[in-house]
Design a protein around this nucleic acid. Sequence first.
DNA 1: GCCATTTACGTAATCGTTTACGTTTCATAA
DNA 2: TTATGAAACGTAAACGATTACGTAAATGGC
Lengths: 332, 332
Amino acid sequence: MVNMTIKEIAEILGVSTATVSRVLNKSGGYSDKTEKRVLSVLEKYNYQTNVMAKGLRTKSTKSVAVILPDMANEYFAKIALAIENYLMPKGYSINIYNTSADINKEQVILRDLQSRGVDGIIYISGDQGLPNESLKHNIPVVCVNQLEDLGQEVTVIESDNNHGGYLATDLLLKNGCQNILLLRDERHIIPVDERQKGYEKALKENHKPVKDDLIRRISFDVTEAQRSIEEVIKEGIMFDAVFASSDLLAIGALKALQKKELKVPNDVQVIGFDNVTFSMYSNPSLSTIHQDTQELGTQAAKYLFDWMEKSILPSHSRTVIPVGLVKRETTK
Amino acid sequence: MVNMTIKEIAEILGVSTATVSRVLNKSGGYSDKTEKRVLSVLEKYNYQTNVMAKGLRTKSTKSVAVILPDMANEYFAKIALAIENYLMPKGYSINIYNTSADINKEQVILRDLQSRGVDGIIYISGDQGLPNESLKHNIPVVCVNQLEDLGQEVTVIESDNNHGGYLATDLLLKNGCQNILLLRDERHIIPVDERQKGYEKALKENHKPVKDDLIRRISFDVTEAQRSIEEVIKEGIMFDAVFASSDLLAIGALKALQKKELKVPNDVQVIGFDNVTFSMYSNPSLSTIHQDTQELGTQAAKYLFDWMEKSILPSHSRTVIPVGLVKRETTK
DNA sequence: GCCATTTACGTAATCGTTTACGTTTCATAA
DNA sequence: TTATGAAACGTAAACGATTACGTAAATGGC
């Protein structure tokens, strides 16, 4: 069945299109009686407003763009899902843009956003920071994660990475570990650096030295993590715990330890970061720091919504979402 | 910088909007000279066409909806990603709709699709089949996966589940297994049933009986899988291999076996289905059947594209994508 | 040079809404 | 009764593109 237009509805009722539009938008200027008549006909013919026509006139498409590195990555996907769950019931539709790998894709995306006239953008950073250009188009932008310092210009929602690093390290220390290896992403990005700062803070609080040869920087890759741990063992460096800056790296560490017949958690304790679904299923199941992707997405969506609909510019440019300690089998 | 309109561009050039529109759409009816002049001005002012205005006129939004159960599930996300990678370079944008959990969300989505005027729909089935209504709106629909028999009415892209089941079982048999436990999703949906048929086919070809007490139907859940295997062991049923109808269930089986101190693959061999990322990282790494999500998505997108742009109705209503055997450490 | 085509462009209607402005209706007060 | 104001509704111009149709200019053939 093809859609009705406002004009057709108006003709059926013997009123003007203006009246129909008014009751559709509840903008007043009609009697109770006509409201009921109009509504019943709209209902009867299952009228759906044509968003393009409406958008052309009002310059609002009721759609937001979610830009992320890779939706096949559970972490980003979960955040995007939370965004959708918040925004869909409010009448918005979500356009997903994967930036992955392609550098000039960013350009294509920005052009597309502009010509489609999205009402807002949520930018989830992973590999690279927010491109400055996207701020130039005077359309609301909210960022999840902050990779580089962008000043006060943008609204950022992020996990409490520092405290996460602290929590993980503190647990290991409380469990009696003396030499905690930090296995971290080699890139200089804020979230990872913050996790390391939390690690160092916990050590200092417990009057332990921060040893450079216990801090390993590697690329974000499972086999790299595995190789790195094997290397450390070969070098004869003593350690009784591994804090990996992500679950993926922790899994690699786990594999290396199990290959070397080291018992987890008896010989070496391991803790990751993120709490991806699989960390629960590994064997032994992985202790980790939970990132609240649900809340990251919801908060970002909420800020964007208020900005778009009520023109409320977020009051604080940084919002920090708490993280949680998840104890499983790789720690005591 | 705010966007230019065709009218403004035309005024700058001293031509009509029609001429500008014509060179924009390369529809002919202009000289080489004016084409160059127009293009240079378009370039200079970084003109972006307003998709809403264009869509209103042409009734095409250059956007497609991807409906899936849950984008946080890697399997669905990968298919959606492949769709995006195919369709974005062709000028389409992707609207993602998660149906998860919410029954009446399906209704909301369908209404939204209609009022937004998407040019096409790709429906990725997971938990539930395609709702009939979506076919009524005379807009191109392509389905990935087929849960129930829908007749010839729809275009379906799916993995060769039957052959996957066969490959998995055949490997186990060739490895000398005598009693292969089939751990399957309890739901009566085609993909799972087909995997079982492949399992039975391999057994019959090797003159082995299909034993009912070796076929376990459980809900789609890791701990359920674990529980089920523990139960089988408690019942004293002999088995030397497990073929799980998905990697998730295989992981559960693995956990149960390791808890019972059964060695994988020496005492029991295990093989899953899907080849999710994590199957590679489990310990021991999981042998499995690879579903080509890349190809599933690309093919679906290709069919939809031809349908939308060239009005080519897909010639065969079912397209089967080959699966592959991935041997890792849980099989010999 | 003249007529017939073809080419190049302009004019204006159209897509389906919203909304400023104008008009009618009606209740109320003087 | 009549003036007054509010309430209810209609008219028509936008929003920014596309495109059928008309017209002027260029081209070609004789």
